[in-house]
Every structure is written in structure tokens, then in C-alpha cells.
Design a protein around this nucleic acid. Structure first.
Lengths: 202, 202
DNA sequence: ACAACTTGCATCACCAATGTTGCAAGTAGT
DNA sequence: ACTACTTGCAACATTGGTGATGCAAGTTGT
């Protein structure tokens, strides 16, 4: 029920599927209106092959979304957000999520259709994050008067901003992986302390 | 040179143009792939009328972008970012920009084509903002070690987040204008102080 | 009132993208 | 080696959106 795949694919076909998904991500990230032709070209396969694996364009995008969302969920889970000390988990999760989001920016931004499997997973992730932010507040990391949901939203916005910048700036120059740990540190520093000096007040 | 309009339009035509621009904004904001037909319907005119005013779909979107960018520039200018005390200007600009961005979310997010008039205006606005953030730092509002460009980017991200939320949440329930001043206050508070408590540190 | 302008409607041509099929050549797994 | 699977290629049908045109009815401004 996870995918339209009925029976297991042969090894080469499986590889092709992943190649297509990755090529689609790259291509659609640059141009959301890219054609199946362009995606196929980017994957180095014929257009008919793409259609053999994904009946319609919509099916392809759904599959991308599902794939990306699963990876995101994994990234968060790996940080053990319910059991680790919350601030540690926040760091871990941030670095992990940045890694995923940098490669799957398009797929993560496609508004997930209602009733989708992706939507379920996504909501689970959001719940998990909200819970983490409540834990952060209980631990005194967040100020008491701050709405943890607002804090989580600011956090998302910062992640989005960092990814946005990275995918336009450094992707072209070097293929070297950006230092997600350093980015996570800067991000969380900004999230918690802001950019203002303690002296000047409103 | 501002638009493809050669000679002045009659009053009713002028009104039609603005009606179309607004309808296009609303429609494309909900669904970026909306057809000219849908846009025309939303504007309460025939599709041919839209094509009479905007030769191609691209021309329409360009016009929207230009229109929105001009309003944005106006919103920033009205805050007198070079002459007012920087923190005052920041408040003023934020409230103004929120008002504009809430109505023109789609048009502001369309990546402006190179060489566009919109791009020129947009760059001017960015320069203006960067300068404001340098003034903020000189005034001691921003911490000395913070990169003012990073601060500006965080600021943009927060604005985007606030607009995102508003356009999905409250637009459906009430037509009442959201309190942009209160939003600006919350936004700037978060920007400067973050969400963390002063005690807990990294 | 009159001329100029604008709009809706019906209709058309056009095209680019989508999705399908059959077949031949190549590859995976046993 | 043999079978089943996968892929590329070529060709095709379909369709939904785009853009254009001519005309009749209505509106604006003077």
C-alpha cells in the first residue's frame, strides 16, 4: 500500500527508479514546470521508461514526496527526540534534517495532497517536533512566555531559509557537502538568542 | 517603459486591468498552475478580455510581479529607512511590508526574470534593507558579531513565515484585516531576542 | 448625440506535453 | 544457456491550454 509497485523489481529496475527520483528532484528543483522529457534526460533514460515506472506525472511527484518525507521522518527519529536531552536532540535533528532537505528541497515543498501517505508521515513529524519544543520549554531552554508552536514555526522558517540559500549559492560552485553541523549551530543560536544585543530593548 | 501599455486606457479598462491583476493574485496564490480561464472567471471577465490586456500568460505574471514589487518598494520607502531611527524604521517597514505581502504573496514569490524592471526594484529594496540592518548594528541594536546580512535574511524568513501562516489560516475564516502592527511586534521581538531563555546557553 | 473604445461570445488554429503501444536489443538471475 | 525482465526507439492518439479574430452589444467621454 506504500507504493503502486505490486511485485518486487529486478535490481536494475530498482536502480533506475531511484535514479529517476533523484533526477526529478534536481530538475524540478531548478524548474518546477519541467517536462517529463527533461526529467528523463536528466536521469539518462528514455521518457517511456519514466512512464513505465510512474504512470502519470502526478504519480511521480507523489512518489518523490513520499520518498522525501520518509527520509525526513528518519532524520528526525535518528535524533531520538523523545529520549535524548531536548537540546541535544534539537542539534542532532537539525543537522540530519538539513542534510535531507538540501537534497530534496522540491519534494518537501510540494503541498501534500489530503489523505496521502506522505501527509500522515508529515503530520507525525510535526507532532514529534511540537513535542520536542514542549520538552525544550519544560527544560527551561525556551522562555516560559513563548508559544512553543510559534518557536517551532520559526525553527522551520530558519531551516527553510538556510536551505534556500544553500541550494542557490553553493550548489553551482562546488559539489562539496556543506557543513551541516556548523549550519545547525548557527541556526539554533539564532533561534534561541536572536540577533539583537541584550542591552537595547523595545 | 514601465508597461506594454502604449496609450492611456479608458477609465473602465483601467479598472478591468486592476481587477484582473488582483484576481490573478488570488487565484495563482491558491494554485500556481491555474489556467487563464480560471483567472478570468475569478475576475468576472471573459478569457479573451484577459488576453486583450495581457498578450501572454507570461506578460500577465510579469505585470503582477512588477505591480507587487512597486508596492513593496513603496512600503519600505514610507518607513524612511535612511533617516528615521533604525529601530523605528524597522517597525514601520515591517508593518507596511506585511500589509502588502499578505495581499500579493504569489507575485512576490515568483522568481523575477533577469533584466526585469521588477528585478531592479527588488534589488534596490534589498540594498535598502541591508543598509538599514547595518544602521541597526551601528546603533547597537544588533549584536556586534552578528552578520547583518544574515540578520536581514532571518528577517525575511520570518516575514515569509508570518505571511504563509496568515494566508492559509485566517483568510478563510474572516475577511477582517489582521493586526499587522501586533504581528510586526512579535516578529521583531523574535528576531532580536530569539525564543530562548537567557539562562540556558549552548 | 456621436465617435471611440471596450467587452462577451463563438470559433478557430496551434502546439507542447502527456500517455500508449509494439518491437528489437540488451541484461539479470537461475 | 535459458527465461524473464528491462530498456530504447519510433510512432501514434489525445488533450488541455494558449493565443487570435470577427462581430454584436454596451459603455465612456466629449
Amino acid at each position: 500500500m506504500s507504493s503502486t509497485t505490486i511485485r518486487p523489481l529486478r535490481a536494475d529496475a530498482e536502480r533506475t527508479v531511484r535514479t529517476i527520483l533523484e533526477a526529478a528532484e534536481r530538475t524540478l528543483n531548478r524548474n518546477p514546470a519541467a517536462t517529463m522529457e527533461e526529467i528523463a534526460a536528466a536521469a539518462g533514460v528514455a521518457r517511456t521508461t519514466v512512464h513505465r515506472r510512474f504512470a502519470t506525472r502526478e504519480a511521480l511527484i507523489t512518489a518523490m514526496s513520499e520518498w522525501a518525507t520518509r527520509q525526513l521522518a528518519q532524520a528526525v527519529d535518528d535524533a531520538r527526540p523523545d529520549t535524548s536531552p531536548p537540546l541535544v536532540a534539537l542539534y542532532q535533528a537539525t543537522a540530519n534534517v538539513l542534510r535531507v532537505k538540501l537534497s530534496w528541497g522540491f519534494s518537501m515543498n510540494t503541498s501534500l495532497a489530503k489523505g496521502n501517505e506522505s501527509e500522515r508521515i508529515w503530520n507525525a513529524v510535526v507532532d514529534r517536533c511540537d513535542q520536542l519544543f514542549r520538552r525544550l520549554q519544560d527544560a527551561g531552554v525556551l522562555r516560559a512566555e513563548v508559544d512553543p508552536v510559534w518557536a517551532r514555526r520559526v525553527y522551520y522558517a530558519l531551516i527553510h531559509e538556510v536551505c534556500q540559500d544553500l541550494s542557490t549559492t553553493s550548489n553551482e560552485t562546488t559539489g562539496s557537502d556543506p557543513d551541516t553541523d556548523a549550519l545547525a549551530t548557527q541556526l539554533i543560536d539564532t533561534l534561541l538568542r536572536g540577533t539583537g544585543s541584550p542591552t537595547a530593548q523595545l
